[in-house]
Nucleic acid binder design. Structure first.
Lengths: 337, 337
DNA sequence: ATGTACTAGGGAAACGTTTACTGTCTATCG
DNA sequence: CGATAGACAGTAAACGTTTCCCTAGTACAT
């Protein structure tokens, strides 16, 4: 059984494809009589018609599909993807998730193979791809909104300033009496670890302390756990551990507990991003919570506006992560006002 | 600046669109001379050509895009999505994630508006949508592989049998000396909680014990936490808690610890699914680990075969979840062989 | 010379829509 | 009665590919 087309409906109703199209898209509503409109709608339903979106996209140049670019879909990124699905729900848009590590040479990629044709892109912390994309000139076809720590002068941007949160966390650890506040980070050159490291280093300068970097290879839970084991064995453990994200904070947490180190008495611990599980540990983990809801809403709002008015002025919004102090870093009772 | 088309290349090279198409798709490789081929390739690169995928899809009827259907993207589902991205990486396919709660009435939805045109669908525990989809007849256009606990006689299926794992967990809790083994589940009628509950109930029959169901409204961490609070306050706490998934296990864990209940001494706890964080708690949480890698590989293999040979025999594979015993349920030292 | 086979490439239809333009009919007005 | 306007619907071109089928040319065998 062939798939139904607009023609089949036209034939069944005894009208022309144009009329069917007008009715089904609602584009010429006032130009079609009520009776014809009803007949067409009914027949479409009966025949089980569903439009061929490729054909529609071909002629309209719009797909009603946007892409989320991310380098992975774990933890924080999964949270964003999930919220974004919620945000898009009332809209007519669907979301393609594109794994941007897929294509090692983005520049070449964009020159040769188009990515899936979307009307617009929300790029979550994927600076390499965005750069190549913009360089390829494809940005005119499908605009990019960059979300996260990185942005470019040519694109709309919704950012989250974690710098101030990290600074706050560093001061918080100092206030809790930590003497050696180390930063558990990812490999240099990996984003978004770099900007967080810079914020840490700046905070340490202001605290007039020596920065101390601990680097995990893969920035995974497991890496962090083993790194901590090493540190404890060498007897070289700092007493304050500011982790660049929650995954490594969780790994560090486990590593410390396995070695019998007390949290926060021996080591005070903080993470970053605000993934759900941090709040459920025996010592809930202090973290810098990203405003995911706001981020997603703002990004989609931005993109929508840009799609409606391609030439509207550049949009930029900066949100703030907020330090949420929990047991893992709280040595003294906080006295209420 | 207009977007380049195959025509522009043809004109620049002094050949016909047909030839360009043959070269660029590699479809008529032996039919085109090397010099022409090179010229076309070079020109395409220079002009920054990228094919219009809508047009291609229109004529070929293929989009090289598959959909992942899921009701949410959190926790276990996010793991699957993430692994699936890895699995698809070497392929030419992209993945659309469709939020299947988006459309309350799927039957009507499939009759009226096509979902984004994909070549195939991997449906992760989303039985309602699959049912309507199949009923609408659209299954002939884009085949479904159902992944997870549910399946239909008309679709390929990669399942994970968690029943035996849950049975194992129940027996394990009994063996650990639990007297009252309760099941923390979701609302009746919600999937995939139902099948897990059935497995629990069957296990309890075999253990000759009374089943005891604790129901969370939203099956969220927070719900489970509060439910435990209530239970402790009422002094009505079982000493074995078999949770239907890891989220509620984590919530229960926190609830218990907040109330000063010891794990596993006072309450032994098990989860299900194997999400990463379970291993990082002070008492790592015993869970039934789903073979996510295998699941994703198998599902994609299935779908690929079905796309290549639409009429190949029905495929079905059953994987097994494996009970991973950790501290949260281990009261006695296990003696090695 | 003629026939055959192979190579390189072109012509044009088709895919299923949308939409700008063009008609036809009826009703109303002068 | 003729002209004009408005309501409704149809015609056909376009969107950018792919692909079936055909042609022209060359080489070789008969």
């Amino acid at each position: 059984m062939r798939r139904m087309t607009i023609r089949d409906i036209a034939q069944a109703v005894g009208t022309s494809p144009a009329t069917v199209s007008k009715v089904l898209t609602g584009r010429g509503d006032s130009l079609i009589s009520d009776t014809t409109r009803q007949k067409i709608r009914d027949t479409a339903r009966e025949l089980g018609y569903s439009p061929n979106l490729a054909a529609r996209a071909l002629v309209t140049g719009r797909t009603h599909c946007i892409a989320l670019w991310a380098e992975t879909l774990a933890d924080f990124h999964a949270m964003v993807a999930n919220v974004l699905l919620d945000v898009l729900r009332p809209s007519r848009y669907e979301m393609v998730i594109t794994d941007v590590v897929k294509h090692p040479d983005w520049h070449a990629y964009f020159q040769r193979n188009a990515p899936w044709p979307v009307d617009g892109i929300i790029a979550l912390d994927s600076p390499h791809s965005v750069e190549s994309y913009l360089a390829s000139g494809a940005g005119r076809n499908a605009p990019v909104v960059s979300a996260g720590a990185y942005f470019w002068p040519e694109t709309d941007h919704v950012g989250v300033d974690l710098g101030s949160g990290i600074r706050e966390a560093a001061f918080h650890l100092a206030e809790q009496g930590c003497v050696r506040i180390a930063h558990l980070t990812c490999q240099h050159g990996m984003r978004p670890g770099d900007s967080r490291r810079l914020a840490y280093e700046a905070a340490m300068r202001d605290l007039e302390r020596e920065p101390e970097l601990l680097v995990t290879e893969q920035s995974s839970r497991e890496d962090a756990r083993l790194l901590i084991h090493d540190l404890v064995r060498r007897g070289d453990l700092p007493d304050g551990l500011l982790c660049f994200n929650d995954e490594v904070a969780i790994g560090a947490y486990r590593g410390l507990r396995e070695m019998g180190v007390r949290i926060p008495e021996d080591v005070a611990l903080t993470g970053c991003d605000g993934i759900a599980d941090t709040a459920y540990f025996d010592q809930p983990i202090t973290t810098i919570v990203q405003p995911v809801d706001e981020l997603c809403h703002a990004a989609w709002q931005c993109l929508q506006r840009r799609l409606d008015e391609p030439d509207c002025p550049l949009q930029s919004r900066m949100l703030k992560g907020s330090l949420t102090v929990r047991g893992s870093s709280l040595r003294r009772e906080v006295h209420g006002p």
